[in-house]
């Protein structure tokens, strides 16, 4: 067991021992949040706005290459927040994407906050739709909404929320707009007051759909009640080494049980 955890860089257990070593008092939190998004959408700014930290925010894609962590207390609950490296996608094989993907899947954050650039919704949806396949505890932070207004874009965030099946909160983190609403939405999803029904991708070729459904059936049989069987099937079909390993080592089983435990708690 311990062996397994040592291999897993992003597991929360490993992380907390790591932090203890550093002497940062973050081994106690009620909820863990992950902050994901495309590069240069103002993730670090949102992170700073939530934690009161002053992480440097440079204006070039890929500024944040390592994970940074911070914390805050909201409505008497302690939140730990992890700023993941900005990525365009979770399907390629670069290191930063793997860090982000592994944390969202194996780190099992209570809420994943996706930062979207309101001026480039269509491009940002690529990553968003991928995360929606992995987890069902999501809040979307539609950042840079002031920029969008300046560019004469009108965005119907209610419709977007309905389409995606998750809360969508327009913000302008630079000016501090919308942060309260964002906190409330995070609180609601974390406490199960808002149950997400995330959009799953519908398009695709016939042969792919056939292969996926064949595999999904087996996965669902093996891990009953699993919510992201389709995504795991796709990863297996693409030969994703980390997911294959997870299946081999029964990590998915652990993962799934952990979710169950937290839900009954």
């Amino acid at each position: 067991m311990t062996n397994k955890l040592n291999n897993c860089e992003t597991c929360p257990v490993h992380q907390s021992t790591y932090l203890k070593k550093l002497g940062v008092n973050m081994d106690r939190w009620d909820y863990a949040l992950a902050l994901a998004g495309n590069p240069n959408t103002g993730k670090s700014t949102v992170f700073n706005a939530l934690t009161g930290l002053r992480q440097h925010t440079g204006n070039w894609p890929g500024k944040t290459v390592t994970r940074t962590e911070g914390g805050f207390i909201y409505q008497e609950k302690r939140y730990k927040i992890v700023d993941l490296p900005g990525t365009y996608s979770l399907l390629s094989t670069s290191t930063d994407e793997e860090v982000a993907r592994n944390f969202i899947l194996f780190g099992k954050p209570d809420v994943t906050v996706i930062i979207m650039d309101a001026t480039r919704i269509e491009r940002n949806l690529n990553l968003t739709l991928q995360i929606l396949e992995i987890t069902d505890r999501i809040v979307i932070c539609l950042n840079l909404i002031d920029e969008a207004r300046r560019h004469q874009l009108r965005i119907d965030e209610r419709k977007l929320s309905k389409e995606l099946g998750v809360p969508v909160i327009p913000t302008s983190a630079r000016k501090g707009e919308g942060i309260d609403e964002l906190l409330r939405a995070i609180h609601e999803v974390a406490n199960g007051l808002y149950v997400c029904k995330p959009h799953h991708i519908t398009s695709g070729s016939k042969s792919l759909k056939r292969a996926v459904s064949q595999l999904v059936e087996k996965i669902e049989n093996r891990f009953s009640g699993i919510s992201n069987a389709r995504w795991i099937a796709l990863r297996l079909l693409e030969g994703d080494p980390r997911i294959i390993e997870a299946v081999k080592k029964g990590e998915l089983d652990n993962l799934y049980q952990r979710i169950e435990n937290t839900e009954t708690k």
Binding site: I121, E122, R123, L125, N126, L129, Q130, Q152, L153, R154, I155, D156, E157, K159, L160, E163, L164, H199, I201, T202, S203, G204, S205
Partner: peptide, 16 residues
């Protein structure tokens, strides 16, 4: 297929 969905959704929610 992801981009196809993304295009459909953004068409519905964004107006210039």
């Amino acid at each position: 297929s992801i981009y196809q969905d993304a295009a459909e959704i953004s068409e519905k929610v964004v107006t210039k």
